[in-house]
C-alpha cells in the first residue's frame, strides 16, 4: 500500500508541476473574480466561497483521468492489479495519493488567498473545514467514476456529466454555514458507495 502511494507521489513529482498546476489554476480563478464583479468587498466575500467550490470541483474533474485511466492505457494497471493482494487496498491508496497530490496544495494556499479577500479568521476556518470534508467525498466519487469508465478513452466531458450531479449535494451544503457535520456524513456515505463500486469496476477490468 505504501509503495503504491509512494509510486503515485513520485509520478506526480516527475510529471513536474502537477502540484503547482492545480493550485495556480485555483488562484487564477479566484483572481478573476474582481475583474468580473468589481471590487466591492461585501460582494466579493460572498462570491469567494462559491468560487472555491467551483474551483475545487473543476480541479478534481480535470485530474480524475490520472486516477485509473492513464495507468489503464499504458498497461501499468496490469502490474498494480497483480502485485497487490486486495482491490480495496489499491482503491484506498489511490484515494490517499490523489488527495495528497491534487487537493492538499489547495488547502495550503487557501489561507493566503483569503487574505486577498479580507476574510476574518473564523470565517476562513469555517470555509476551510467545509472544503476539507467535502473534498474527501468528491475524491471518492471521482475515483469510482474513473474505475467504471476505464476503457472509455478521452471522454472527460462524459465523465464530467456523470460527476457534476453527484457533486451537487456537496456544493449545496458546502456553501452553507455550520454544515460540516452534513459534509462529513456525505463523505462517509460516498466512501461506502465508492469503495464498493470502484472495486467492482476494477474487477470488470479483466473482462474488458
Amino acid at each position: 500500500m505504501y509503495n503504491l502511494i509512494l509510486r503515485d507521489l513520485y509520478l506526480a513529482l516527475y510529471s513536474s508541476a502537477n502540484f503547482f498546476y492545480t493550485s495556480s489554476f485555483f488562484i487564477l480563478i479566484l483572481v478573476l473574480l474582481p475583474f468580473i464583479f468589481g471590487t466591492s468587498i461585501d460582494q466579493l466575500q460572498l462570491l469567494f466561497k462559491g468560487t472555491l467550490w467551483i474551483g475545487l470541483s473543476l480541479s478534481i474533474i480535470l485530474t480524475m483521468e490520472r486516477i485509473f485511466n492513464t495507468d489503464y492505457e499504458d498497461g501499468n494497471l496490469d502490474i498494480i492489479l497483480q502485485k497487490n493482494s486486495s482491490l480495496e487496498i489499491i482503491v484506498i491508496s489511490k484515494y490517499i495519493s490523489h488527495w495528497l497530490v491534487y487537493c492538499l496544495p489547495l488547502f495550503i494556499i487557501l489561507p493566503l488567498l483569503s487574505l486577498l479577500f479580507y476574510l476574518n479568521t473564523s470565517d476562513v476556518f469555517a470555509i476551510f473545514l467545509n472544503l476539507l470534508l467535502g473534498s474527501f467525498g468528491m475524491i471518492f466519487i471521482a475515483t469510482f467514476v474513473s474505475a467504471l469508465t476505464l476503457a472509455a478513452k478521452r471522454t472527460i466531458f462524459l465523465k464530467a456529466i456523470i460527476m457534476i450531479p453527484l457533486f451537487v449535494p456537496f456544493v449545496i451544503f458546502g456553501s452553507g454555514d455550520n454544515s460540516w457535520l452534513i459534509l462529513l456524513a456525505l463523505s462517509m456515505l460516498s466512501f461506502v458507495v465508492s469503495i464498493y463500486v470502484s472495486t467492482y469496476g476494477l474487477r470488470l477490468y479483466g473482462e474488458s
Binding site: L11, D74, N76
Partner: peptide, 10 residues
Amino acid sequence: GQKNSLKDNL
C-alpha cells in the same frame, strides 16, 4: 503484455 507500462512523458 502488448502494452509497455511506460509513461511517455518521463
